[in-house]
Amino acid sequence: MNSVRNVYLFPYVLWIILCVVAPIGLIVYDSFFDIEGHWTLENYTKFFTPVYLKMTLSSFWYAFLITFFSLLIAYPTAYLLTKTKHKQLWLLMIILPTWVNLLLKVYAFLGIFGTFGLANAVLSTIGIGTKQILFTDFSFVFVSVYIFIPFMVLPIFNALEELNPSLVDAARDLGASAWTTFRRVVFPLTLDGVKAGCQAVFIPALSLFMITRLIAGNRVITLGTAIEEHFLVTQDWGMGATIAVFLIIVMALVVIVTGNRR
């Protein structure tokens, strides 16, 4: 009996060790060495200098914006989806874009937002004239929200689906208006879905780097971009690893704080 279970356990343990524990261990190990390969704590002291703190702040700020707008769009969308007749089909339409490679989608936006792209064509037609859309905060947040929305919609949709509809009837029956019913019954009972969605968006949004480079043209520097720079450009693996350690700690905290499910 036990040996059978061990056989099933093997791939999981192997996966955890090779793809989770070992990489994290290597990152932590790397973070204690400087660019010349000498053991040091300097990376950590450097991290708490204004340059990196500003970067951290900006990462959090953009991750927050992306999460916020995703939620703002995803909740009503998920709510609407649960009310439609062919909800599985409409849900599939939302999930579908996630099957397309991230890079392809980002490149598509380069075309749409470019100087001679579709967005500017529309703007000039309605008389506003051509604008610089690419390489702005707006385009960065817009594309990120677009990328992340399915991950926000799904858990909220599931939470709404699990909500017993007679609870809504009960609230109305007890005199609650549609808004009060939402505020006091529907939203609190779907909060777990909202938390799961925020986790699924906020955490990856913290370490975005490709979109920052392509869409924001490195105007937006986040921790993700910094890690990329250190590993690929400056070759300062120690500093890059230190930032990664910091990000891992923050992500763990986010999961712990938002994760206390009932």
């Binding site: 109305r172 005199g175 019954v185």
Partner: peptide
């Protein structure tokens, strides 16, 4: 429904799972 002088006891009771007994009764 919220403007009627009628209240319902539901088949599955439809009690609010996120509220305790006091808050359920106090809801209205």
């Amino acid at each position: 429904a919220n403007k009627r002088q009628v209240n319902t006891v539901f088949q599955d009771y439809a009690l609010f799972p996120h509220l305790d007994v006091f808050e359920n009764v106090a809801f209205g």
